[in-house]
Design a protein around this nucleic acid. Structure first.
Lengths: 253, 253
DNA sequence: ACTTTCGTTCGTGGTCCTCGAACGATACCG
DNA sequence: CGGTATCGTTCGAGGACCACGAACGAAAGT
C-alpha cells in the first residue's frame, strides 16, 4: 500500500481526489472543489467535466453530485455479493430474534467494509453504513475477521494502520491483540465491550467456506440491553448458529 | 453528452476503460485487459496498478478484480438512497401480495438504473440487476419515468439512444412513443406487454414528490400468471397504490 | 531443455495535463 | 443603474508524464 515503486497514472490521483471531494462536500462546483483540494479552478473544472462525461458525476446546473455509476461496478464485486445475498435471510432472522441490528462485513485492503444489514425493532445504528470502510482492530466483526487471517497479514495490517484508541478499553498493543485473536479462534466468536463507543457491545462470528475466510456477521446494541448472560451466552449462540447456517448455504452453491 | 467541446482528462478514458474491462471479464490480468482494449500491455499494467492503488481494484496474485470502493461512493448518491429506503417496505409488500418481483428505478443520463428490488415467492428475475443501466423506452418502469420528464428532454434521450427493437411489439417510432407516454400520464401507470422479452409483462407507476419526479416502481412476471384482469386492473391498482404510499412517506421527511 | 505466456520494468518521444489569466453570466447591494 | 463579487467556463503555453515497445524473470506446459 505504501510502496510506490510501480509506475502509476498520476492524473488519476487528482481525478479520484475530485470524486472524493464531491462526495465529501455532497455536491459542489468547480470553485468549491478547487479550494478543497488546493488546485487550480480550471483543473478542477476539467476533472469534473471528465467525471461527468464518464457518468460518475451528475451535472446539475453547474453543480455536480455523485452518480450511481459506481453502484454498477461496486455491486458486482461478485463473490461478495453472493455472500450478502446468502447471509441476508440469516441477518433478518438474527435482527428479529434479538431486536438489535445485524451486519455482514468483509475485509478489503486491511479495512472492514459493511456489506449488508438488517434492523430489529429496537435497533439503533450508531456507527455502520453500507459500504463504509472502518479499522478492523476495535470492532467485533473486525476481530472475527482478523482472527482468521494469516498472522503475518495481521501484523502487516496492524503496522500499516495504527491502533487508534477510541475508548479506554480499546486494545492498542499488537501482541495483546494477537493474543485476543487466539481466543477468538478457539471459541468461535469475538466480542466488543465498549471498545468503539462507550456503552455499546457487539458479538461477531467469522464466516468460513472451504477453509477460506469470507467475512463475518455481527449483532450489536446498547450495553443495558446486552447484559451478562445475554452478552456472553445467548448472543454468541445465536450468532455462531447463524454463521454456520450461512456457511452451509454457501457450501451448497 | 455527445458534445466534446469541453476539455477533459484524456487518460481518464483509458482508466475507466480498464475498470470496465476488468468488470466485464470478471477479473483478469494485464495481458487480458490489453487485448480486450487493444492497448499496450505496459499501459494496461500501469492503469491496473493505478486503480489498485486507489483501491478500486483488488490485486490477487497478478490478477485483478473489481473492489468495493465504488459501493462507498455509489451508495451515498443520497437523495436516491432515501427513495430506496422509503420504497423498500412497499416493494416487499407488493412482492408478497403478487408473488412476483418488484423494483424501484431512477433515471440518470437518459438511462434507467435499478435501485432496489424485492422478490415474491414465485419471482423470476429475467432482466434486472441492482445498479444495471438499461434503455428507458422499452420497459414499463422506463415509460413511467419518461412520461413525467419534459417533452424536449424525452426527445433528446430518444435521439441520443436509438429505439432498439427487442421484440415485435417494441415501440420504435418516437411519435408513437410520445403518444403512449401521454396515455401513461393520464391513467397514472405504464404497461409492458412483451416488449422487452416475449412472454413477459410488467406494470409500473411513477413516484412523484412535490411535483418532482423521483423514479418509478414496477412489478413484472411471466404472461401466463399476469393475464387479463390481473394485468389490466388488479396490478395497476396495487402498483399505483404503492406509489401513492411511497409519495406520502417521502412528503413527510 | 524448449516454448509459451504471464506480470513487470524501463528509456524515450511527443502528447496533454496543469496552471494562470481573462471572459461572460448572474446575483446582490447601495 | 453602475459597482462588486461571485460563479462556471475558455484558452494559450510550458513542462510534466502518459503510452508505447522492447526486454526480463518466473511459471507452467510439452
Amino acid at each position: 500500500m505504501t510502496n510506490e515503486s510501480t509506475r502509476t497514472v498520476k492524473s488519476a490521483a487528482t481525478l479520484f481526489d475530485v470524486l472524493d471531494a464531491v462526495h465529501r462536500l455532497e455536491g459542489g462546483g468547480a470553485t468549491a472543489v478547487a479550494e478543497e483540494l488546493d488546485i487550480a479552478k480550471s483543473t478542477a473544472h476539467d476533472h469534473l467535466a471528465t467525471l461527468a462525461e464518464h457518468e460518475f458525476l451528475i451535472k446539475d446546473e453547474g453543480s455536480y453530485r455523485v452518480g450511481l455509476k459506481c453502484l454498477h461496478y461496486g455491486v458486482q464485486a461478485k463473490s461478495r455479493m453472493v455472500l450478502a445475498d446468502v447471509a441476508s435471510p440469516s441477518l433478518e432472522q438474527m435482527a428479529e430474534e434479538t431486536g438489535e441490528i445485524a451486519w455482514v462485513m468483509v475485509e478489503e485492503y486491511g479495512k472492514g467494509v459493511y456489506l449488508e444489514k438488517a434492523m430489529g425493532d429496537r435497533a439503533v445504528q450508531p456507527y455502520g453504513e453500507i459500504g463504509k470502510r472502518v479499522p478492523l482492530h476495535n470492532i467485533a466483526a473486525g476481530k472475527a475477521i482478523l482472527a482468521h487471517l494469516p498472522e503475518d497479514r495481521v501484523r502487516e495490517i496492524v503496522t500499516e494502520t495504527p491502533l487508534e484508541e477510541r475508548t479506554e478499553t480499546t486494545v492498542s498493543d499488537p501482541d495483546e491483540l494477537l493474543a485476543e485473536l487466539e481466543t477468538v479462534r478457539d471459541r468461535g466468536y469475538a466480542l466488543n465491550d465498549g471498545e468503539t463507543f462507550e456503552g455499546f457491545r457487539a458479538v461477531a462470528s467469522p464466516v468460513v467456506n472451504d477453509g477460506e475466510l469470507l467475512g463475518s456477521i455481527v449483532v450489536s446494541g446498547p450495553e443495558n440491553r446486552l447484559s451478562d448472560d445475554r452478552f456472553t451466552e445467548e448472543l454468541p449462540e445465536i450468532v455462531t448458529g447463524a454463521a454456520n447456517a450461512i456457511e452451509l448455504s454457501m457450501a451448497s452453491r
